[in-house]
């Protein structure tokens, strides 16, 4: 323990000085494991998050919407890819991360266990779910691990397009027919609370928070980020002339923030534990694509090996 002390001091000093930790730098094992957990969970969320929206690509209501949605879902695959690559710099393979996702050992954002039931859900997901993700990711652009911070900078550029396309869907529905407005309101009613849950438990109940803040893996607390998201979203909802499903939501002049009601944490933990509509479907979908693609990946590897051998012989 004691012979690590100078390295640890040095490491903490670098973090305190706002320097980035790079893959070749010394780091405490707990820092590395903590990052692997958080980054792979983030990568899995990008990939599993393709499913609820992907569900609507085939039946998007116009050609324009189909194209926008497909390119959004494609971006999420790209985010998954950057994040897996960034996580690999910590000494874990993509195959290993994949199998941890499929075995349930590794988590993904629990919000994707909710079903996307109508076209308005595509709007609500882009607006609220990507919106919440952005608040978190903007803060992570300054995270202490270099490859993670750089991945976040790249990802944030695309995320703002995601939120805009989602909000734009909501605007069109809100300006549309009675049925369209109802569809939009129903989607907000179902996605609002889960979006707030995306920021995680209250700071006082969050197991990993304190150490993560000290190491600057996290830069802002769950509750601060959640507040920021609520504040920005209330105004956007007013423009739509739709409502957020929270009777306790009101401006607090003193705090200069919106107050809002208590989250149903029981629901949050229930869904994480497996009691959401889609927990099984999401993993099943992932496993089946992976298994059906096994022969393709094997063939690509076999071909590359043959080619290398032929080169050697020649």
């Amino acid at each position: 323990m004691s012979d690590l002390a100078p390295e640890l001091d040095n490491f903490q000093q670098k973090i305190d000085d706002e320097q980035r930790i790079e893959p070749k730098d010394w780091m405490p094992e707990k820092y590395r494991l903590n990052l692997i957990r958080q980054m792979s969970q983030h990568a899995h969320s990008e990939v599993i998050g393709m499913q609820p929206e992907g569900n609507w690509i085939s039946s998007a209501p116009s050609l324009y919407r189909k194209i926008v949605l497909l390119s959004k879902v494609q971006d999420e695959a790209g985010h998954g890819l950057y994040l897996y690559s960034a996580t690999e710099t910590l000494g874990i393979s993509r195959a290993e991360m994949n199998s941890r996702l499929q075995s349930g050992e590794s988590k993904y954002a629990s919000i994707f266990n909710y079903p996307s039931l109508t076209w308005a859900d595509v709007g609500a997901i882009g607006w609220l779910v990507d919106g919440a993700a952005i608040v978190n990711q903007v803060s992570l652009q300054r995270t202490s691990y270099g490859p993670y911070a750089r991945a976040m900078i790249r990802i944030c550029k695309e995320e703002s397009f995601h939120q805009r396309q989602g909000y734009d869907i909501m605007v069109k529905l809100a300006e549309g027919s009675k049925e369209q407005r109802e569809m939009a309101q129903d989607a907000i009613n179902r996605w609002w609370w889960p979006s707030l849950m995306m920021f995680g438990p209250h700071d006082s109940d969050s197991v990993n928070s304190q150490q993560s803040m000290k190491w600057k893996i996290k830069r802002q607390s769950n509750d601060d980020l959640r507040q920021k998201f609520v504040d920005q979203t209330v105004q956007q909802t007013e423009i739509l002339k739709l409502e957020l499903p929270d009777p306790d939501l009101k401006w607090n002049e003193e705090r200069q923030h919106y107050d809002f009601g208590e989250i149903d944490w029981d629901e949050f933990y229930q869904v994480i534990k497996g009691n959401g509509h889609c927990n099984r479907d999401r993993i099943k979908h992932h496993v089946s694509a992976h298994e059906e693609g096994a022969w393709v990946r094997d063939a690509m590897t076999a071909y590359a090996e043959k080619k290398a051998q032929r080169k050697e012989v020649a």
């Binding site: 497909l70 693609g293 393709v296």
Partner: peptide, 27 residues
Amino acid sequence: SEWTSNSPNLEEDIANSNVALDYLGRA
């Protein structure tokens, strides 16, 4: 576009979405 989220790996998934987008844009 039916390959999106169903491809053998992420690289192929992205490539398939790309090609689908070209076709839909052409349409």
